[in-house]
Simulated scan of single mutants.
Amino acid sequence: MNDKKNLSAAFEDSREHLRGVAFRMLGSLSEAEDAVQEAWIRVSRADTEAVENLRGWLTTVTSRVCLDMLRSRKARAEDAVGERLPDIAPADTTNAEQEAVMADAVGLALLVVLETLEPAERLAFVLHDLFGVSFEEIAPIVGRSPVAARQLASRARRRVRGAPERDEAELARRRDLVTSLLVALRAGDVEGVVAVLDPDVVIHTQAHDGKPLEIRGARKWAKSAVAFTQRATLPLGAVEVALVDGHIGAIYAPKGRVARALKFTFERGVIARVDVFSDPAAVRALEIAAI
C-alpha cells in the first residue's frame, strides 16, 4: 500500500511536467490530459521496484502513449483522405483558455510545424530538443538505434527552424515590423498599420467568391484589415509571426491549425507587398516554420 501511495504521490508531483510533454507531442490539451491519464493506468499496473529514475520513467511511459495516439491519428487522417476532418474543439471555455495559454507558451508556429512531422520525428524532437532526453533513452521508445533517433530529431529540427534568406539581424528587424503590424491590427489602430507599410503597398488576396484580388495603397488595406480583425475577434494566442515559405510572415491558427497565412515582402525598411493565403489547398502547400 505504501509503495502504491508513493507512486501516486510521485505521479502527481510530475503531472504538470507530463502534461507539458504530452501537449507538445499532441498539440491538444484534452488529448494531453487523456494521455497522462492513460499513462497513470499503465504505471499503476507496472512493477516499479527496479525503477531508479521515476520521473524519467514516467516521461517514457507518457511518451509511448503519445506515440501510439499520434500513429492512430495519422492512420485516421490517411483513411479520410479527401474528407474534411472535423476540428478538435476543447470541451469548455475554461479548457480553451488553458489551451491558448499553453500554446502561447510553447509557440503557435512550433505547434503548427510539429503537426507536419511524422510521429517518430515529433517524439524525438520534443523529447530531445525541448526536454533534454538523451537519444539513448529515446531510441527504445521509437524502436530505433540511438543514431537513427538522432537523425529523426535532426530532420525535425530542420523543418521546425526553416531557412530564412537573410541574416539574423535582418530577420529580427523584419520580425519586429510584423509584430508591430499585428499589435496595431488587434488594437484597431489604422495609423499604426499604415506606419509599417509602403504607401504603395500591394496586397494579393482572394475575394469572397475565391477569385484573386489585388489591393493597392497602405491606407485602403489598413482600413479593411483592421475591420476584418475587429469582426473576427481573433482568439488569444491564435496569431503569431512565423516563417512562411522561408519569408517572414504571420499565421492565424486557431486550435493549432492554420486557417490563414500572410507572407511579407520588404523594401526600404517597410512592408511593400503582402500575399494573403486563405484557400485550404494553398495554405496546406505552404512551408511554415518557427522563428
Rank of each mutant, 00 (worst) to 15 (best):
A9M: 08
A9L: 08
A10V: 10
A10Y: 06
A10T: 08
A10I: 12
A10D: 10
A10S: 14
A10F: 12
A10P: 06
F11L: 12
F11Y: 08
F11A: 08
F11M: 07
F11K: 01
F11S: 04
E12P: 01
E12M: 10
E12N: 13
E12W: 11
E12C: 06
E12Q: 14
E12G: 06
D13R: 03
D13A: 10
D13P: 00
D13H: 04
D13I: 00
D13G: 02
S14F: 07
S14N: 12
S14G: 08
S14L: 10
S14V: 05
S14E: 14
R15H: 12
R15E: 14
R15Q: 11
E16M: 07
E16P: 10
H17A: 05
H17S: 05
H17E: 00
L18H: 04
L18V: 04
L18C: 03
L18I: 03
R19A: 12
R19I: 13
R19L: 13
R19S: 07
G20M: 05
G20V: 04
G20P: 00
G20T: 04
G20A: 10
G20F: 06
V21P: 04
V21M: 02
V21R: 04
V21N: 07
A22K: 03
A22G: 07
A22V: 13
A22E: 08
A22M: 11
A22Q: 08
A22I: 12
A22C: 13
A22F: 08
F23K: 01
F23H: 08
R24D: 08
R24H: 15
R24M: 09
R24I: 01
R24Q: 15
R24C: 07
R24K: 15
M25H: 15
M25A: 14
M25D: 05
M25K: 13
M25E: 10
M25I: 13
M25C: 15
L26N: 06
L26C: 14
L26S: 10
L26Y: 09
L26A: 11
G27R: 11
G27L: 14
S28W: 11
S28R: 00
S28V: 14
L29D: 10
L29G: 09
L29Q: 10
S30T: 14
S30E: 15
S30N: 10
S30L: 00
E31M: 00
E31A: 01
E31G: 05
E31H: 06
E31W: 02
E31L: 04
A32N: 04
A32I: 00
A32E: 02
A32Y: 02
A32F: 01
A32L: 00
E33A: 07
D34A: 02
D34F: 01
D34K: 00
D34Q: 04
A35Q: 01
A35W: 03
A35T: 06
V36Y: 05
Q37H: 03
Q37M: 06
Q37V: 06
E38A: 10
E38S: 07
E38W: 03
E38K: 12
E38G: 03
E38T: 12
E38M: 05
A39I: 05
A39Q: 03
A39C: 09
A39E: 02
A39D: 06
W40F: 14
W40T: 02
W40Y: 09
W40K: 00
W40A: 09
W40S: 07
I41W: 10
I41D: 15
I41S: 14
I41F: 13
I41T: 08
I41L: 15
R42L: 01
R42S: 13
R42G: 13
V43Q: 09
V43S: 11
V43L: 15
V43D: 13
